[in-house]
Computed example of a mutant assay.
Amino acid sequence: MSGRKVLVAEFTALPGEEEAVAALLAGFAVQVRAEPGCVEFAPFQLAEQPSRFFVYEVYRDDDAFAAHIGAPYGVEFNARLGPLIVEDGSQLTWLQPLEG
């Protein structure tokens, strides 16, 4: 079993779609936080640029992240999010802890 999987997902709402993206993300957060392997799922909206969204995510391990990616509600979320954002899906940045 590997260590925790930590990432930041980010995306930009199309003009006028900020509220729709925020509502969609809020509903998705409830589902993801219920996953047994989810340690943290914290969505944010950039204060000075409300079209920018960031999600700090932590999963117990590779298996937990794989379960998250394979969840049917995640597929539905991404299908609904796609037409509302500038990018071609969430942009993922993987993080690694500094402590030893």
Rank of each mutant, 00 (worst) to 15 (best):
F65W: 08
G3P: 09
R52L: 01
L92A: 09
L81H: 05
T12Y: 07
A47Q: 15
Q31T: 14
E17N: 15
L46Y: 13
V30Q: 14
A13L: 10
T93P: 10
A23L: 06
L92H: 05
G37N: 11
E99A: 12
H68A: 00
F77R: 02
G82R: 07
A29F: 13
L92E: 09
E17Y: 10
A71G: 03
T12K: 02
G37L: 10
P83G: 11
F65E: 09
A29N: 07
L46W: 08
I85V: 07
P97G: 04
P50F: 09
Y56K: 00
Q96W: 11
R60I: 14
T93G: 04
R80I: 08
L14F: 09
C38D: 03
L84Y: 00
R33S: 12
Y73F: 10
Y59R: 02
D63F: 15
Q91K: 13
E40V: 07
A22T: 07
G37V: 12
A79K: 15
R4W: 12
Q49G: 10
V6I: 13
P72R: 13
L95H: 12
E87L: 10
L24A: 12
L24V: 04
I85P: 11
L24D: 03
A26F: 09
L81Q: 01
G89W: 14
G27K: 08
F11E: 03
D61W: 11
A34R: 05
A67S: 14
G89P: 14
F28P: 00
A22G: 01
M1R: 11
G70C: 06
R60P: 11
A9G: 06
P43L: 01
Q96P: 05
V86R: 11
E76A: 11
